[in-house]
């Protein structure tokens, strides 16, 4: 198969992961789209801890989270050719797939046990990764925490309930005692401020 025009192998791309470390994910996705399983293994190793960290935070149950993480990577393999560098970073693309899968899982398990709002406590006990990547991530985490202080309390809570809790904006409104229809505005305003403070996506 011909290489994609205008993209010599190894050329730097704008699709580098936020934080700018680790292998460039965009070319790995492209290689994976052509069936290159070695490139995909490299992609897995570079992103598995992030993907699983988010899945675990949303899904909470470790056994279910492992299933979801596995589904996420199979989906990334299947859809690799659909990543469009013009629409954002490769990391955002795969974390979007990750988040959607995790949220689908908790919503379909709705009738089951979850639904306690103390989502922050339950995932603190998990043993965290201690690699070099983790050090980078803690820098990132610091940056994100600092940015979060720029948000109003309601914006921050609404975003956390939606993103980590997997709640719909209507449920978020009910949880925060907001009039229906205002939670979506808080989420949007908060994300815009977060985006502008961290300096991503523009």
């Amino acid at each position: 198969m011909d290489p994609v025009p205008g993209d010599p192998a190894g050329a730097p791309r704008t699709g580098a992961p936020a934080g700018g470390h680790g292998p460039d994910l965009g070319p790995l996705l492209q290689q994976a789209a052509r069936g290159d399983s070695a490139a995909f293994a490299t992609l897995y190793d570079a992103t598995a801890a992030r993907v699983h960290g988010l899945v675990l935070r949303v899904v909470r149950d470790p056994a279910q989270a492992e299933e979801v993480t596995q589904e996420v990577f199979l989906e990334i393999w299947r859809q690799a050719s659909r990543y469009d560098v013009a629409r954002g970073s490769a990391l955002a693309w795969l974390m979007t797939i990750t988040h959607r899968k995790a949220v689908d899982r908790v919503r379909s398990a709705e009738a089951a046990t979850r639904r306690d709002v103390t989502y922050e406590q339950s995932n603190r006990a998990v043993e965290h990764d201690t690699t070099v990547e983790a050090a980078h991530a803690s820098l990132e985490a610091h940056r994100v925490r600092a940015a979060l202080t720029q948000l109003t309390d309601v914006q921050r809570e609404a975003i956390e309930l939606a993103y980590f809790g997997g709640y719909t904006h209507t449920e978020v409104a009910a949880l925060l005692d907001l009039p229906v229809g205002t939670a979506k505005t808080r989420i949007r305003d908060g994300l815009i401020r977060l985006r502008d403070t961290i300096g991503v996506g523009r």
């Binding site: 936020a18 934080g19 897995y44 190793d45 598995a48 801890a49 992030r50 993907v51 699983h52 960290g53 988010l54 675990l56 935070r57 989270a65 492992e66 993480t69 596995q70 629409r87 954002g88 970073s89 990391l91 955002a92 974390m95 979007t96 990750t98 988040h99 995932n123 998990v126 043993e127 965290h128 990764d129 690699t131 990547e133 983790a134 991530a137 803690s138 990132e140 985490a141 940056r143 994100v144 925490r145 940015a147 975003i159 993103y163 949007r188 994300l191 815009i192 977060l194 985006r195 961290i198 991503v200 996506g201 523009r202």
Partner: peptide, 23 residues
């Protein structure tokens, strides 16, 4: 697209390596 980048920054702070069996 831009808000997804912001959400990604939120979501990538927690690193937890999955068990080797997942790989």
């Amino acid at each position: 697209d831009s808000l997804r980048e912001a959400a990604t920054a939120l979501g990538t702070a927690d690193l937890v390596a999955p068990p080797a069996a997942v790989r």
